[in-house]
Design a protein around this nucleic acid. Structure first.
Lengths: 147, 147
DNA sequence: CTTAGTGCAAATGGTTTGCAGGCAG
DNA sequence: CTGCCTGCAAACCATTTGCACTAAG
C-alpha cells in the first residue's frame, strides 16, 4: 500500500508544476505538507500534520497547514475524509476508494476497490451533476476497540 | 421518492417504541424533529430544522435539535452527510445509499443503489471492522451551478 | 411525584481571516 | 525588486455543555 520514494517524488514534482502553471509559489511548506501526506498512511488531522512537521519546520504555523490543505483540495490532490464529528482527516489518495473509520480510536484504513472507480461516470449520468470527487466512509469499530 | 404518510407514521411510532424500551421520553420535540426529517427531501442542517420547526414550536431551542440529532444517530435512524466544509446535513434514510452533493448551492440528492446495500458485509469481512454505518458522498456541481 | 429533557446562555474547539513582514520568482 | 505567502493572533461559527426549570411517565 505504501507508495515508494520515486512515485512520491514524481507526485511532488507534479504538484510543483501545477503551482508554476497557476503562477503560484512552490514554498517548502507546501511541498513538505504534500510529501508528508503521501508518505503517511495515517490520514492525519491538520493538527497532526502541524505537529509532525514542526520538528523540521519549527516556525511553521497551523494556519499555513490549513491554507495548504485547501489548496491541495482545490487541485484535486487531497481529499478530506473521516467521521462527521471531530476534526477532518486528510487523504493524499484522491482516487475513488473506500475508507473504513474506527469510531473508537479514529483510525482510518483504505480499501482499494475497482468497482468504486467506475462509479463516478455512472453517478454523473444518473444525477446530471458534474462530479469532482467522492468519499466512501464506512463507520464502525476496529478489532481493538470492539469491546 | 417521498415516503407516504402511513410509512412516516409507522417510523415515528417505531422511534417512540425504541425510546420506551430504553426508558427515555417521547417528547413532542423529538417526535417532530424526526418526522420533519422523514418528510423533507432537503437534507437540512440543524439550523434549518430549527427554523422550520420554530413556526410550530416557537420555544424550541437549537440545542434541543442537536441533542435530538445525536440521539437519532445513536439509534441508527439518521445519518449526517454532506461536504466536509460547512455544517452537517442530516438524512432520515439510514440505509446505505449514495448522496450527490452540490458544492455550489449545497443541495443533496439521494440515489438508491442495490450494489451499495451489499457492501457492508463485504467491507466488514475485508477490514475486520464491525460496520455500523456508511456514507457515500459524490461532490460536484448541479446543472444550475455548473456555469 | 421523579427525574429525564428542555431552553437559555456561555464555553468550546476546529477552522478562517486580517495584516505586517519575509522569501520565491 | 514585486507581491505572493507565511506566521501570528484575533475572529468566526457550528456544536457542546452547565444549570435551573418544565413536563413525561
Amino acid at each position: 500500500m505504501s507508495l515508494g520514494q520515486e512515485l512520491i517524488a514524481s507526485r511532488v514534482e507534479a504538484f510543483r508544476q501545477m503551482l508554476a502553471d497557476r503562477g503560484q509559489r512552490a514554498t517548502s511548506q507546501r511541498l513538505e505538507i504534500y510529501r508528508y501526506l503521501l508518505e503517511t498512511q495515517l490520514h492525519p488531522t491538520a493538527e497532526e500534520i502541524y505537529r509532525a512537521l514542526r520538528e523540521r519546520f519549527p516556525a511553521m504555523s497551523l494556519a499555513t497547514v490549513y491554507k495548504t490543505l485547501e489548496l491541495l483540495g482545490d487541485l484535486g490532490l487531497v481529499v478530506a475524509v473521516g467521521p462527521p464529528d471531530g476534526p477532518s482527516r486528510y487523504d493524499g489518495n484522491p482516487e475513488p476508494h473506500i475508507n473504513v473509520t474506527c469510531l473508537g480510536c479514529g483510525a482510518i484504513i483504505d480499501l482499494e476497490d475497482e468497482q468504486v472507480a467506475g462509479w463516478k461516470e455512472a453517478v454523473a449520468k444518473r444525477s446530471g451533476y458534474t462530479i469532482v470527487a467522492s468519499r466512501h466512509d464506512f463507520l464502525g469499530f476496529c478489532p481493538a476497540c470492539r469491546k
